[in-house]
Amino acid sequence: MSADIATYFQASVVFAILIIITALYCILVSRNLIRILIGLELMTKAVTLLLAIGGYVSNRMALAQTFIITLIVIEVVVIAVAAGVVIGSYRHNNDLDAGKMNNLKG
Protein backbone atom coordinates (compact mmCIF):
# COMPACT_ATOMS: atom_id res chain seq x y z
CA MET A 1 0.00 0.00 0.00
CA SER A 2 1.44 3.35 -1.00
CA ALA A 3 2.04 6.11 1.53
CA ASP A 4 -0.68 8.30 0.01
CA ILE A 5 -3.34 5.61 0.32
CA ALA A 6 -2.17 4.79 3.86
CA THR A 7 -2.55 8.46 4.83
CA TYR A 8 -5.99 8.67 3.24
CA PHE A 9 -7.00 5.40 4.94
CA GLN A 10 -5.89 6.76 8.32
CA ALA A 11 -7.70 10.08 7.74
CA SER A 12 -10.90 8.33 6.66
CA VAL A 13 -10.91 6.07 9.73
CA VAL A 14 -10.34 9.10 11.99
CA PHE A 15 -13.19 11.05 10.39
CA ALA A 16 -15.50 8.00 10.53
CA ILE A 17 -14.77 7.58 14.25
CA LEU A 18 -15.43 11.31 14.82
CA ILE A 19 -18.80 11.01 13.04
CA ILE A 20 -19.64 7.95 15.19
CA ILE A 21 -18.74 9.95 18.33
CA THR A 22 -20.99 12.83 17.14
CA ALA A 23 -23.89 10.42 16.47
CA LEU A 24 -23.44 8.61 19.79
CA TYR A 25 -23.39 11.94 21.65
CA CYS A 26 -26.59 12.95 19.82
CA ILE A 27 -28.31 9.67 20.77
CA LEU A 28 -27.17 9.97 24.39
CA VAL A 29 -28.17 13.57 25.10
CA SER A 30 -31.23 13.98 22.86
CA ARG A 31 -34.71 13.18 24.11
CA ASN A 32 -36.51 13.93 20.87
CA LEU A 33 -37.19 10.64 19.04
CA ILE A 34 -36.55 12.18 15.60
CA ARG A 35 -33.13 13.39 16.73
CA ILE A 36 -32.31 9.92 18.03
CA LEU A 37 -33.18 8.56 14.57
CA ILE A 38 -30.93 11.19 12.98
CA GLY A 39 -28.09 10.03 15.24
CA LEU A 40 -28.69 6.41 14.17
CA GLU A 41 -28.67 7.46 10.54
CA LEU A 42 -25.39 9.34 10.99
CA MET A 43 -23.78 6.22 12.45
CA THR A 44 -24.69 4.24 9.36
CA LYS A 45 -23.11 6.98 7.23
CA ALA A 46 -19.85 6.45 9.10
CA VAL A 47 -20.09 2.68 8.60
CA THR A 48 -20.71 3.23 4.87
CA LEU A 49 -17.56 5.36 4.73
CA LEU A 50 -15.56 2.64 6.52
CA LEU A 51 -16.84 -0.06 4.13
CA ALA A 52 -15.94 2.07 1.12
CA ILE A 53 -12.43 2.90 2.30
CA GLY A 54 -11.87 -0.76 3.29
CA GLY A 55 -12.83 -1.89 -0.20
CA TYR A 56 -10.68 0.80 -1.83
CA VAL A 57 -7.59 -0.08 0.20
CA SER A 58 -7.92 -3.85 -0.24
CA ASN A 59 -8.68 -3.57 -3.97
CA ARG A 60 -12.11 -5.18 -3.45
CA MET A 61 -14.36 -2.30 -4.47
CA ALA A 62 -17.01 -4.49 -6.15
CA LEU A 63 -17.49 -6.51 -2.96
CA ALA A 64 -17.53 -3.34 -0.86
CA GLN A 65 -20.22 -1.86 -3.12
CA THR A 66 -22.46 -4.90 -2.63
CA PHE A 67 -22.07 -4.57 1.14
CA ILE A 68 -22.85 -0.84 0.95
CA ILE A 69 -26.00 -1.50 -1.10
CA THR A 70 -27.11 -4.15 1.42
CA LEU A 71 -26.44 -1.68 4.24
CA ILE A 72 -28.47 1.04 2.49
CA VAL A 73 -31.43 -1.33 2.02
CA ILE A 74 -31.37 -2.34 5.69
CA GLU A 75 -30.93 1.31 6.73
CA VAL A 76 -33.94 2.54 4.77
CA VAL A 77 -36.18 -0.24 6.11
CA VAL A 78 -35.08 0.45 9.69
CA ILE A 79 -35.69 4.18 9.28
CA ALA A 80 -39.13 3.63 7.68
CA VAL A 81 -40.29 1.32 10.48
CA ALA A 82 -38.75 3.54 13.18
CA ALA A 83 -40.49 6.58 11.65
CA GLY A 84 -43.76 4.66 11.88
CA VAL A 85 -43.05 3.87 15.53
CA VAL A 86 -42.27 7.56 16.19
CA ILE A 87 -45.56 8.69 14.60
CA GLY A 88 -47.46 6.00 16.52
CA SER A 89 -45.83 7.10 19.76
CA TYR A 90 -46.67 10.73 19.00
CA ARG A 91 -50.33 9.88 18.36
CA HIS A 92 -50.45 7.93 21.60
CA ASN A 93 -48.53 10.29 23.92
CA ASN A 94 -48.92 13.58 21.99
CA ASP A 95 -45.23 14.16 22.58
CA LEU A 96 -41.90 13.17 21.04
CA ASP A 97 -39.98 13.21 24.32
CA ALA A 98 -38.41 9.80 24.95
CA GLY A 99 -38.28 10.62 28.68
CA LYS A 100 -42.07 10.72 28.82
CA MET A 101 -42.52 7.27 27.30
CA ASN A 102 -43.09 5.52 30.60
CA ASN A 103 -46.28 3.61 29.89
CA LEU A 104 -44.58 0.26 30.48
CA LYS A 105 -42.92 1.41 33.69
CA GLY A 106 -43.55 -1.13 36.46
Binding site: I34, E41, M61, I68, I79
Partner: peptide
Protein backbone atom coordinates in the same frame (compact mmCIF):
# COMPACT_ATOMS: atom_id res chain seq x y z
CA UNK B 1 -13.33 5.95 -4.33
CA UNK B 2 -14.58 4.42 -7.61
CA UNK B 3 -17.86 3.10 -6.21
CA UNK B 4 -20.40 4.64 -8.63
CA UNK B 5 -23.25 2.16 -7.99
CA UNK B 6 -23.05 2.61 -4.24
CA UNK B 7 -22.85 6.38 -4.77
CA UNK B 8 -26.03 6.38 -6.87
CA UNK B 9 -27.84 4.33 -4.21
CA UNK B 10 -26.59 6.65 -1.47
CA UNK B 11 -27.74 9.75 -3.36
CA UNK B 12 -31.17 8.48 -4.39
CA UNK B 13 -32.11 6.49 -1.30
CA UNK B 14 -30.30 8.17 1.61
CA UNK B 15 -30.20 11.78 0.42
CA UNK B 16 -33.59 11.55 -1.26
CA UNK B 17 -35.96 8.97 0.19
CA UNK B 18 -34.84 9.08 3.83
CA UNK B 19 -34.91 12.89 3.84
CA UNK B 20 -38.49 12.74 2.54
CA UNK B 21 -39.36 10.25 5.33
CA UNK B 22 -37.81 12.56 7.95
CA UNK B 23 -39.56 15.67 6.62
CA UNK B 24 -42.87 13.75 6.54
CA UNK B 25 -42.42 12.67 10.17
Amino acid sequence: LKAPMAAVFELSVCAGLITVVFISV
